Computed example of a mutant assay.
Amino acid sequence: MGWHDDKLGEIWALPGESLKLALPRMDRAGLQVLLVGDAERHLFGIITDGDIRRALLRGESLDVPVEQVMQAQPKVLSAGVSLDVARRLMLNHNIRHIPLVNNEHQVVDLLLWIDLFGSKVEARPEPVVIMAGGKGTRLDPFTKILPKPMIPLGDKPIVEVLMDRFYDHGFSQFILSVGYKAEVVKLYFNDSNGRPYKVSFVQEDEPLGTAGALGLLRQQLQRTFLVTNCDVIIEMNYGELLRYHHEKGNALTIVGALRDFTIPYGVLRTEAGEFHQIEEKPSFHFLVNIGLYVLEPEVLEGLENGSFIHMTDLIMAAKDKGLRVGVYPHHGRWFDIGQWDEYRQTLRAFEGLV
Rank of each mutant, 00 (worst) to 15 (best):
H4Q: 02
D5V: 04
D6G: 03
L8G: 03
P15W: 05
P15E: 02
L23D: 03
L23G: 04
R25E: 04
R28C: 04
A29D: 04
G30E: 06
L31P: 03
L31T: 02
Q32D: 15
F44S: 14
G50I: 05
I52P: 02
G59K: 12
S61H: 14
L62S: 02
L62D: 00
D63W: 11
V64T: 10
V66D: 01
Q68G: 03
V69R: 00
Q73R: 14
K75Q: 06
V76K: 03
S78K: 14
S82D: 15
L83R: 11
V85G: 02
L91C: 01
H93N: 15
I95N: 02
V101W: 00
L111N: 00
W113H: 12
I114M: 03
S119L: 10
E122T: 13
P125D: 05
P125F: 06
V129F: 03
V129S: 03
K135E: 13
T137D: 09
T137S: 09
P141K: 08
T143L: 08
I145H: 09
P147D: 01
K148H: 05
M150R: 06
D155S: 11
L162S: 01
F166Q: 12
Y167L: 09
H169N: 14
F174G: 10
F174R: 09
I175K: 10
Y180K: 06
E183Y: 10
V184M: 09
Y188I: 10
N193F: 12
R195H: 11
V199R: 06
F201G: 08
Q203M: 14
G209I: 07
A213T: 10
L216K: 15
Q219I: 02
Q220Y: 10
L221F: 09
R223P: 01
T224S: 10
E247M: 10
T253E: 00
A257S: 15
L258A: 07
R259M: 13
F261E: 13
Y265F: 15
L268S: 12
R269K: 15
R269A: 14
R269S: 12
T270F: 06
H276M: 11
Q277A: 15
L287M: 15
L287Q: 11
G291M: 04
G291A: 08
E301R: 13
L303N: 06
G306A: 07
G306L: 06
S307I: 01
F308T: 07
D313K: 09
A317N: 11
A318T: 05
K319W: 06
D320M: 09
R324S: 12
R324E: 10
V325N: 02
G326M: 07
V327Q: 05
D336S: 12
W340Y: 11
W340H: 14
Q345C: 12
T346P: 07
